[in-house]
Design a protein around this nucleic acid. Sequence first.
DNA 1: TATTGTTATACTCTATAACTATA
DNA 2: TATAGTTATAGAGTATAACAATA
Lengths: 158, 158
Amino acid sequence: MEKIQEQVEVKLEQDAAALEALNLRLSWVGRRWLQHDLDAHHLTVPQYMTLRCIQDSTEGCSMSELAESSHQVSATMTGIVDRLADRGLVARTPHPRDRRTLRVVLTPAGQQLMAEIHAAKRTLTRQVLSSLLVEERQAMIQTTRRYLEMMESILCSP
Amino acid sequence: MEKIQEQVEVKLEQDAAALEALNLRLSWVGRRWLQHDLDAHHLTVPQYMTLRCIQDSTEGCSMSELAESSHQVSATMTGIVDRLADRGLVARTPHPRDRRTLRVVLTPAGQQLMAEIHAAKRTLTRQVLSSLLVEERQAMIQTTRRYLEMMESILCSP
DNA sequence: TATTGTTATACTCTATAACTATA
DNA sequence: TATAGTTATAGAGTATAACAATA
């Protein structure tokens, strides 16, 4: 009985090592792949992440919110938003109540660019998913979400 | 019948959008998480990827191989390997037959550092995997591998 | 005093173009 | 001529520390 348990442990260790190596490479290649897509629009990955964050919000984001969302210091966000603003994709608008705070919003040009990117997006995800059963798709989404939540909690805790 | 097929398509589209958003965030957070781990060893993510690539090879890598593996131009690799060599973690050794080519290898210090990082690695992957059935783990590894292969093929083709 | 955001600085990564040495 | 690698250059992202404005 103990021997079987031991074998299960060994197998788990192997699976963990295999998946860890795959995820490391997936994260790296995924970024290069995204950058490859964004090149056509002269956007960088951090710039795109920032636009997504603003897009997902209802009334724009403060600089602090953008920094927190991407796990970066606010000084870094200043530079990224500067370049997006220079291109007219976002605008810094004042906060109605707190004059220290800004609301960064998408301009019409920014909204249009995001729509173009969305339309041009490759169908890699759909290709993979369409070869799975509905239950498998759900399981994959659930597992990925769990992964992400664990990572974020570890990253935010200190 | 057509109506059911339509619903399946809609559902697939939703699943694809959900997983795409998750993967985008996972790729970003995964990198921050890795960087957070590497900070203790004063390594950057590109430096770590380079060390991994050398470690996985049997007789060291040429500069071209390192560049190709990370989908970067060789001029970029020159800088990364310069900094690793300055710290004594890798060494440029001559190729026995072709005097144009280098073999970048891990020094003993580099091997020791990689061993330390491996030992200190968080058990996030194992935590997630241990809550899955063996069949689910295998399915997850397979799906992740398929994803990666598709990405790499798209990235390399042009 | 505490918070929001920017500026100044230094370093790494990244690509392009021009270059050297070798095949 | 073609290939392997480096150098020079420019720009983007990143963190730290110091700072101004506001609460």
